[in-house]
C-alpha cells in the first residue's frame, strides 16, 4: 500500500511538473502546443542514457535532459514560432507525429519499440535514493522559478505577447526571442520530468511519449486552470488518481473500469467547461468570452 501510494505520488509530482511547465507556455505566453510529450521523451531518453552509459547520478541525468530538451526545442521553436497562434498548434501536432516515428526508428538512441530497459536506480554519492523526493524537489524548484518570472519583467513580456503581440512589439520587445525562451524553459522542465520518469520506472519506450500523453498533460492543465501556479498540479493529481480511485470501488467489474473512466472523464470535462470554464483554480473572468 505504501509502495502503491508512493508510486502515485511520484507520478503526480512528475506530471505536475509537466502540466506546470506546459502552463508556462500556454497560460503565461499564450503559445498552444500539443507536443509536450516530445520534450518529456527527449529528456527521458537522455536521462536514461546518462544513467545507463555513464553514472546513475540523478542530477547529471536531469541536467542532460534539460539541455537536450531545451536545446532541441529552440531549434524546433524558432521556425515554428514565426507562424501565428492556431498554426503553431498545427505545427506542434506535426512535430508530435514526427517525433514518435523518430523515437521508434532511432533504435541506437531510444531502443526503438522495445525501449530502454534496466535503467539503474538513481544514486547520490553511491546511495540509492527513491525518485519521489527528487521529483518533489524538481517540482518546487521549477514552481519557484516560474513564480519569480511571473512577477518580474519576463512575466509581463509574456503576458503582453499573449494579450496583444503587436503592441508588445511596438514597445520594443523582441517577441521571437521572448517566445523562444519561454518554449525552451518549458521544454527543459518537461525534459527533467521525463528523466525522472525514466529513472522511476527504470524502463522507457515510445508509448509514453505519444499524442495521447500530450493530450493528457493538456487535460490536466485545462482541468486545473491555465495561468495559475497550482492549478496544473491539482489537475495532475486528479487525473492520475481517478483510475486508482475507481479500482477501489468494488462493484465496478475490473473489465469495465476503462469505459467507466472514459464516461467520468467526458462528463467531468463537460461540466467543468460549463461551470468553471477557466479550470478549477483558474481566473473565471478570463475563461468567459469577452464581447
Amino acid at each position: 500500500m505504501i509502495a502503491y501510494l508512493s508510486n502515485i505520488a511520484t507520478l503526480a509530482a512528475i506530471f505536475g511538473l509537466l502540466a506546470a511547465t506546459l502552463n508556462f507556455m500556454v497560460g503565461q505566453a499564450g503559445i498552444f502546443s500539443v507536443a509536450h510529450a516530445v520534450f518529456m521523451g527527449l529528456g527521458a531518453y537522455s536521462g536514461a542514457q546518462v544513467a545507463l552509459l555513464l553514472v546513475p547520478d540523478p542530477f547529471l541525468a536531469c541536467l542532460a535532459a534539460a539541455v537536450v530538451a531545451g536545446g532541441l526545442s529552440l531549434c524546433l521553436a524558432l521556425p515554428a514560432l514565426r507562424v501565428r497562434g492556431e498554426y503553431f498548434v498545427a505545427a506542434s501536432l506535426g512535430l508530435q507525429m514526427m517525433a514518435v516515428t523518430l523515437f521508434t526508428e532511432a533504435k541506437g538512441l531510444t531502443g526503438g519499440m522495445g525501449g530502454l530497459v534496466g535503467i539503474p536506480q538513481p544514486r547520490i554519492f553511491g546511495v540509492v535514493v527513491p525518485v519521489l523526493p527528487l521529483a518533489l524537489v524538481a517540482l518546487v524548484v521549477f514552481l519557484l522559478l516560474m513564480a519569480a518570472m511571473q512577477r518580474g519583467s519576463f512575466g509581463r513580456t509574456l503576458g503582453a505577447i499573449r494579450d496583444a503581440e503587436s503592441a508588445a512589439e511596438a514597445l520594443g520587445k523582441n517577441v521571437a526571442v521572448a517566445k523562444a525562451l519561454a518554449v525552451a524553459f518549458s521544454a527543459a522542465g518537461a525534459g527533467v520530468a521525463g528523466a525522472l520518469f525514466a529513472l522511476h520506472l527504470s524502463f522507457v519506450n515510445v508509448e509514453s511519449f505519444t499524442l495521447e500523453q500530450s493530450v493528457l498533460i493538456m487535460a490536466m492543465l485545462i482541468v486545473g486552470g491555465t495561468g495559475t501556479l497550482l492549478g496544473p498540479i491539482l489537475g495532475a493529481v486528479l487525473l492520475l488518481s481517478l483510475p486508482a480511485a475507481l479500482s477501489f470501488i468494488t462493484f465496478i467489474p475490473p473489465t469495465d473500469i476503462g469505459s467507466v473512466q472514459q464516461i467520468i472523464y467526458g462528463g467531468a470535462m463537460a461540466l467543468l467547461m460549463i461551470f468553471r470554464p477557466a479550470g478549477l483554480l483558474g481566473d473565471q473572468k478570463r475563461g468567459r468570452s469577452e464581447a
Binding site: 519583467s153 519576463f154 509581463r156 503582453a160 514597445l171 520587445k173 517577441v175 526571442v177
Partner: peptide, 15 residues
C-alpha cells in the same frame, strides 16, 4: 503592468 511593460524593452529573462 501595462505601463511597466512599456519601460522594459528587453525580451530576455531580465532587464
Amino acid at each position: 503592468d501595462n505601463v511597466l511593460a512599456a519601460t522594459e524593452p528587453s525580451g530576455w529573462f531580465w532587464q
